[in-house]
Structures are given as structure tokens and as C-alpha cells.
Nucleic acid binder design. Sequence first.
DNA 1: CATGAATGAGCATTCATTCAT
DNA 2: TATGAATGAATGCTCATTCAT
Lengths: 211, 211, 211, 211
Amino acid sequence: MGVKERKKMEKQMRRSQILGAARKLLLSRGMDNISISKISRESQLGVGTIYFYYKSKEDIFIALQEEGLSLLLDIIQQIHGQKKLPSDRKLVKIADAYYAFTRDQQEYYNIINYFLSSPRIFFNEDQKNHVDMAGSRILQVIQEIVLHGIDTGYFNKTDPKKFSIMFWATLHGLVQFKKLEHTALHNENIQQVYDYSVQTMVQMLHKKGEE
Amino acid sequence: MGVKERKKMEKQMRRSQILGAARKLLLSRGMDNISISKISRESQLGVGTIYFYYKSKEDIFIALQEEGLSLLLDIIQQIHGQKKLPSDRKLVKIADAYYAFTRDQQEYYNIINYFLSSPRIFFNEDQKNHVDMAGSRILQVIQEIVLHGIDTGYFNKTDPKKFSIMFWATLHGLVQFKKLEHTALHNENIQQVYDYSVQTMVQMLHKKGEE
Amino acid sequence: MGVKERKKMEKQMRRSQILGAARKLLLSRGMDNISISKISRESQLGVGTIYFYYKSKEDIFIALQEEGLSLLLDIIQQIHGQKKLPSDRKLVKIADAYYAFTRDQQEYYNIINYFLSSPRIFFNEDQKNHVDMAGSRILQVIQEIVLHGIDTGYFNKTDPKKFSIMFWATLHGLVQFKKLEHTALHNENIQQVYDYSVQTMVQMLHKKGEE
Amino acid sequence: MGVKERKKMEKQMRRSQILGAARKLLLSRGMDNISISKISRESQLGVGTIYFYYKSKEDIFIALQEEGLSLLLDIIQQIHGQKKLPSDRKLVKIADAYYAFTRDQQEYYNIINYFLSSPRIFFNEDQKNHVDMAGSRILQVIQEIVLHGIDTGYFNKTDPKKFSIMFWATLHGLVQFKKLEHTALHNENIQQVYDYSVQTMVQMLHKKGEE
DNA sequence: CATGAATGAGCATTCATTCAT
DNA sequence: TATGAATGAATGCTCATTCAT
């Protein structure tokens, strides 16, 4: 019995050994520079071994993406959990947290972003469902906040689902514009635009005249 | 001098010959299927010749991106040029046109998106200035519309530049979410969210109570 | 002794378990898609276990070949057993049965064919005797029929062994030509050639003038 | 002009350099042991170079097969060209020549045989046509001989095409049985069976009674 | 007996790039 | 200028086999 458990532990360890190597490569060299043989070299494991634990390169990417998403989700849920915080503050804080995430966990952001924006289809139906559901949790949290704001009469009535998607898409789009700061955007500071946008969207939710 | 000019002309012709082949491959086979040797075959030019005119594959991509951007810019400017159209209608039409563009000119959209979402930095200083200016013109048009709306008292006062960037980023972000329609978005129709978002943003610009 | 016997039984069971998995893979996925690890997965046994019972992939193929041959032999013997059937009818029926076998049991046919047409020598002395005897039985049956035909004065005198080998080789060769039907054979229907050949060979056996 | 021709010559040389290496590997190690990288090593050329001259592994196989077929065809046509030889003697000589070919040019025989008997589909439609047409020439020669024999009243009337296919298939099948000589065939000498079969088939063609 | 983790050579193919002509 | 032959590293992935437990 102890044997079985140890085996299981070791298996877990190998998986994280592989993921560790992949993560290291991801963080140091970027998405386009990961290959199975590089992971093999980095992890000191044979290529066959990599394939024993992950049945394709995509599976490894998925695991990494899930890491990133769950990291982000944790942050967001931690904010969501602050019962005393009013709904609008929650949205602002979440937006800020996302901006910080894209800055501080750049490569995790990159990997999430990579799959979202690539025209290529990387994942089969199963994989897609698996991954996207993780991302869907984030949208759900925002939706819950909006819904709660509406229910308590704090926010105007609006389609909470549509609003949440717009909200998140706006943040997402703005972050991608960051690299245009000094060219197309003529030195307009993206972070300020980001703050402006968040504020604007949140104000939209507030009942006119009340405030 | 006549000689010099002819030489320059010929050089231009070769470049457009190459670009033509690349464009054909882009539109017919997609981004991931362009390689120098394929361009060589398609353009009836030697690989060496390709390299003489474009020093790397990325340079060709950049040129194609410019094409796509200028295509999009044309559409937008054509809308902008409709003097009789009120500012809010213009914004809606531009948004609709962009959505249509991402649908109908998918490969051009993909290549624009590719550079925008890639974590890598592709451009040297020269290329940056040269290329992104095309994208910047789009934002300028929107900005002009917003500004004109404010100046004529049609829109609320708001930072026109920041608003334009937000506006565009939202559209851009939403289009990228399209691929999540059936997973993370739980079958929420993105086009409807897109319309909702455009409407919402435009309404924000309108003076309260007036309309 | 009872223990020894049970051990032997269990060993047989394991072997047939492995063979069952291999057969399933053979019939469903074809020869080229069998690998030890696939057999391992299919049979619910560890790869090491497979190697314990069969010391190589080829050994498993040989076992499958035997299966196929014995399947074919059964069909042929069933025909041979029809006492009332005249010798010439038997030959025709056997030929037809073989043709049907190559069509309906394609993967068994493929594996038999594989060993027969491969330039490599797969068998060690042991395997040779063991395996080929199955094939040899088929020839014996034909030989018996021919011999009986001659003995009863139904057929001309000819070397029964040589004739049988020629008979079988012709069928075998023709089946292999099937894939040339639309190219080298210029749409000549192989089945018709097959029938023609069988008839021709059988007529050769008949006494001239009689019938 | 001289330059162009030399280039062409050099290109031819490279092709035969590659084919030479492939042939050498084929003859020394057998079909299953050829890989592009082995050809690359053997020919002292980079793998990329191989692919520059042959666009796939299959193309190389085809070239080799064509070599073999044309070798065989030459022999057969040389016999066919002997105007004085009666039709039956021609058939016997061709059969003998084929038997000798399978013995003396074993690896060429193996490669032809390999593709004929493999259940796998190696070639696309184009490649198949290309190759099989070469094989079809052999059958045509036999057919011509049979037809000529019939026309001159030397042979019985029979379907010349069907007969030719049967004739060749029988030879082909018998050669494949060679490896069973000491097992399934119980030491019956295949060459004798071969001779017996050829004689038998040729006699069938002769008018009864005349001879 | 039975396991299944680990291996690493091997596969066909693509590619951006160089360079002698 | 223009060519296209040559390169060889790189890719994702499979597989038969071994061996410590």
C-alpha cells in the first residue's frame, strides 16, 4: 500500500519535473521556443519519458495554461471573497489585478494570450473544453459581481453576461495595445487608458442621478 | 538618372511580384503555410532573389500587414467621409465594418492580429515607425469623429483619445473572444455582445437626457 | 503435478489474452498499427508481461498467422469433406473459397502474405517447422483431391504434388495482382481472370475427349 | 549554354548519386532498412539535398523500382526480339529469364515484389500509374507472343490477355513459394515445379492432337 | 510472475539561410 | 542582380526493449 502511494507520488513528481522544465523554458525563452526535445534536455528526461507523462506537446501547454489561469483565478476570487467591498470597487480591483498580472506574470499571460489569439487550432474538442472552462470561471465571477450589484439596486439593469464579456474583452484588448504605446498610440500611456476605461465602464453601471 | 529611375521601378516591380505571391499564399493557405521557398515557387523567382529584396520572412509579413491595415483603413475612411452621417452612426458603422473585416478578410485579420498579440518584438525602430503608423491612422479617424461629436455638442465631453483607444480595444478584444463562443462563453453569441458593446459605448457619449 | 498443470493453463490463458488483443488490433487497425504498447493497453497487461510470453513482436505475428492459416484450412477441409463432390468441383470450390477469404478476411490474408512475401527470414528452425506446417496442410488437401481424381480415373495422370503447388501459387499470384487491376492490367477484372485460370487448370486435368 | 548543360549534367549526377546510395542500402540491408537519413549518410549529402532531388522517400523507391523493372523488361524484350524463336520457346525462355532474375537480382526482385505484395498503399495515384505502367509493358510482351501464336495457328484460341496474366501470376506466385521449399513444400524443389508449370501452361496452348 | 517507467535512437519532413556562380 | 543547389539543425512523435521493484 505504501508502495502504491509512493509510486503515485513519484509520478506526480515527474509530471511536475516536466512542467517545471517547460515553465522554465517558457519564462526564459518564450512560447515559440519550446520543443519536446528542449524540455527533454532541460528536465534531464528522455523524450520518450515526456511522452509517457504527457501524450502531446499540446497537453503540456494546456497544463501550463491552466497553471496561469488558476493563478489568475485565485487572485480574482480572493477579491471576490471580500464581502464588505462594494460591487464597483470589486470590478476596479479585479481590473487592476488583471493589469498587474499581465505585467508581473508576463509569460503566463503570454501563454494564455497566445492560444486565445492564434488563428491556429491547437486543441481538440476535449482539450478546448477543458481549458476554456477554466477561463470561463473568471467571467463567471465578474458576472456574479455585476448581478449582485443589480440585485441590490446598486447597479443599473443591464445584461450581466454581455456586460461581463464586454468588460473583460476591453481589458484584454487594452493590454494587447500596450506594445503600441510608443508608435500607434503616440505615447499615450496605456495604463491611464486602462484606468479610464475601467472607470467609464463602471460608471455606466451606476444609476443615473443617484450616485 | 533615367537609368536610375528605371532601376528603381524594376526594384519596385520585383517587390510587388514577391508580395503578390506571398499574398496569394496567405489568402489561400494561411499564415502558417508561408515559407520562403513556397513564395519562391509561387513568384517564379529564386529564393536568393527573395532574400535580396526582403531580408527575412518577417519583413514580408510586415509588408502584408501593411496591406491589410490599409485595406481596413480605406473602409473606415470611406465611412468617415460620409459627411451627412452623424457621429454616433459613424462609430457604429465603423464597428460593424471592422467586425465584417475580421470575418471576410480573415487572413489579413490574422496577420494583423499575429503581430499585435505576439509577445515577441518584431520591429526594429525603423519598421516600428513605418508600420504602426498605418494602424495609428485608424485610431485617428475614430478620434476625429469623437472630437467632432464633442465639438458640435452632440457628445458628452470625454477624453477623445482615451475613448477612441478604449473603443477600438473593446472591439479588438471581443473579436478575439469569438473562438470562446461555445466554451467559456456558454453559447453567448459574440456578435450580439459586440453590438451590445458598441451601443453601450456610443450611448455613453450621448448627453444624458438629450438624445 | 496439479499445480504444474494449473500453471500451464494460466500460461495458456495469458497467451490467448495477449493474442486476443493483438488480433483485435490486427482486424480493426491493420498490420502496420500493431505495437507492443498498443497490445499492452488493449490486453490490460503490462508491456513487460507481453515480453514474458512472446519474446518479440514477430512472435505474435507468427501466432496470428497460424490463426489465419488454420481458419483458411478449416474452410478448405470442410469442402474436402463433402464426399459427394467430384474432384474438379472441389478444386473450384476451394479456389473460390480462397478468393473470398482474401477479400473477407483481409487482415489475416495480409499477415499471411506478409511473411510469405517478405524477403527477410523470420523464422528460426523451430518456428519454421511449427508454422509452415499449417500452410503445408492446405497443399496436402489439394494434393489429396488431385490424387483421388487420378486414382479414380477422373483426372489425367500428372505429378499431383507439382500440380497442387502450381495450382495454389497461381491463385496466390493472381490475388496479389488485384491491386494492379486499374493500372498494369488495364481494367481487366481480376476475378474473371481468376475464374478463367481455375477453369483452365482444372480442364487440364481432365482426360482429353472424355467429359 | 555550356553552363546550362553542365548544370543539367551535374543535376543528373546528383540524382544518380542519391539513387546509388539508396540502391546500395537496398542491396546490402534490404528494403526495411532504408531511411532518408541513411541515404544521406551513405551519399554524403545533406538530408535537405535528398529532398531537393526527390520530393519524398516514395519517389526514391519508385526510381529504384523502375530501375529493376526496366532491367527485367530489357531481358524480356531481348528474348521477344528473337524473330526466329517459336512462340512457345519464347514463353519458356521468358519464364526462365524471370526465374534467373529473381535469383540473380534478388534485391531488385525484392523491391518490385515488396510494393506488389504490401497491403499498404505507398503511392498516390500519379505515382502508381507511373510505376505500374512500367510493369504493364512486361505483360504486353507476353500477350503479344500469345496473340502471335494464336494468329499463326500455332496456339489454340484462348483469351490472350487472361492467359498472359495467369501465366505471369503463376510464375510470380511460385517464386514467392521458394522460401517454403524446405517446410511447407517438404523439399519439393521449386525450380522443378516452376519448369513443370511453365511446360504445362505452354502445352495448354498447343492444339490438341497436332503437336 | 508481473509491472510499467524510462530510454534514446529513429523516423520523414521542413525550413531559413548561405553562397558560388 | 539573380539564381537555385546545398545545408543540417530542428520538429513532434513512436517504438521495441530493458530492468528495478
